[in-house]
Amino acid sequence: MVRDRTAGAAPPHDAVGETDAGRIIILGIGNVLTGDDALGPTVVNTLDAEWVLPPDVVVLDAGTPGMDLVALAAGAERIIVVDTVLSDGPPGTLKVWDRETLLAKPLSPRVNPHAPGLIESLFTLDLSGDGPTGVRLIGVVPEATDVGIGMSDALVASVPRVIATIVETLREWGVSVTPATRPAAPDLWWQVAARGVFIDGSSGRTRSRDA
């Protein structure tokens, strides 16, 4: 098992979430319990283990925050968001959007809850005067996001490419990043649970998938 669970075992207090300390926030979005949707958390935890980032670049496993993204991203000058996306191309296809292209599409009718995490939150941050000036969405087309633990081969293979794109983006923004001399093992704690058993999204049946 991965964690000490006794008194004093909580991670030390740091700046994440306590203050609006991050000038740049890298948000890994997605649900670690639904197959390929673990991409965002997997990427940010791996980035954190393998790269040395300046203190004002904050890395956050944000889960699926919906409109709470507003609270998590507020005050940042720039944000990088990593998530699975609905788009063309085979599983593992990587695409990048910037602020202008994300906000160019009109929102779907107001009853639509989809993607409020990002686009609605950006609109909301803009309105409050806290909107980031730089935005990158690094999206990967998933194979399946059914309930169960473990990403498809295509998504596992995409992780290094996503990280390279993040590093490239940071450097483009003038941030100095270096590979860790002794990279730690990324904290992918959810992988201790049964892998490769999934509940099919349409039929609802349990099935196996190699993970």
Binding site: N31, T34, T64, V85, L86, G117, L118
Partner: peptide, 29 residues
């Protein structure tokens, strides 16, 4: 209809989240 349903603070199946930057999922009334 939305007034009454929203008054419950509905939240279901919040687990699944795939960004939709191209506006593919059309919600409908």
């Amino acid at each position: 209809v939305l007034r009454t349903v929203h008054s419950f603070d509905p939240c279901l199946a919040c687990a699944i989240h795939t960004s939709d930057p191209e506006g593919r999922e059309l919600s409908a009334v």
